[in-house]
Simulated scan of single mutants.
Amino acid sequence: MEKPRKGVSKGRIPTYEDSFKIAVAREYLAGNYSTRQIGEKYNLTRDNIGHFVRWYRKHYPDSSTPPVEEQSITAPSNDDVLTKELALAKLKITAMEMMISNYEQETGVNIAKKSGTKPPAK
């Protein structure tokens, strides 16, 4: 996945898409990867990742992904397994939404289902 950037020309500091920030923050908060591993994966600095996590917590305070410092180090219980599965499912949903958004931007075609459409005639 290539990180989306805006404003790279003219020496401006790059601005990242919100969906990219969410994906990186959720991946970090899931607790499976360190900032170094995520930084290498997306070619980001630790400061970028920290900024994304702070931004995510500010804009999505009721997120069900627990902060890393609140996660237990003991053997995983059923709740921990379910929490990780939920976090992974949310990450997949974010990825699918990003794919749909990118496709719509590239082709100019809205592929989301429109409400009130009539069923096909038989």
Rank of each mutant, 00 (worst) to 15 (best):
S77Y: 00
S72N: 12
E85G: 01
T35R: 14
I73F: 07
V53K: 14
M99S: 14
P66Y: 12
T74A: 12
T45M: 01
N48W: 13
A75W: 02
A75G: 01
L44G: 03
I73R: 14
D79K: 04
S101N: 11
T94F: 00
N102D: 15
L86I: 06
S72W: 00
D79R: 07
S72L: 05
M96Q: 04
R54V: 09
S34Q: 05
M96A: 08
A95K: 10
R36M: 11
G31K: 10
Y33V: 03
Q71T: 08
G31C: 09
H59G: 05
K92G: 03
H59K: 15
E70Q: 13
L82N: 13
E85W: 09
V68E: 07
S77L: 05
L29R: 15
I100K: 07
L29M: 15
R46I: 08
I100M: 08
N32G: 11
Y33R: 03
E27F: 05
Y33Q: 06
Y28V: 11
I100Y: 00
V68P: 05
I49P: 08
T74Y: 04
S101L: 02
M98C: 06
M99F: 07
S77A: 04
W55G: 12
M96S: 01
H59T: 14
R36H: 05
N32I: 04
W55K: 12
W55I: 02
K92N: 08
L82S: 12
A87G: 03
V68G: 06
Q37L: 06
D47N: 14
P61W: 14
L44Y: 10
I100S: 04
L44F: 14
E40W: 01
K84P: 00
E40D: 10
A87T: 06
D47T: 13
K84C: 09
V53Q: 13
G31E: 10
R36D: 08
D47K: 15
A95L: 07
L91T: 03
L88W: 02
D80I: 09
H59I: 12
S34D: 05
Q37I: 09
A87C: 02
I73T: 14
Y56M: 07
N78L: 10
Q71L: 13
I93T: 03
V81L: 12
G39K: 00
Q71H: 08
M99N: 11
Q71W: 11
T35Q: 14
A30S: 10
E40K: 11
T83W: 00
S72Q: 11
I38R: 06
F52K: 11
R54F: 09
A30Y: 13
Y28C: 07
L91M: 11
Y28K: 13
W55A: 09
K41V: 09
K41P: 04
D79H: 05
Y42T: 03
Y28H: 15
I38L: 15
K90Q: 12
S77V: 02
D62Y: 08
S72K: 13
I38M: 08
K90I: 00
G31S: 07
M98P: 02
T83S: 06
E85V: 01
V68C: 11
Y42I: 02
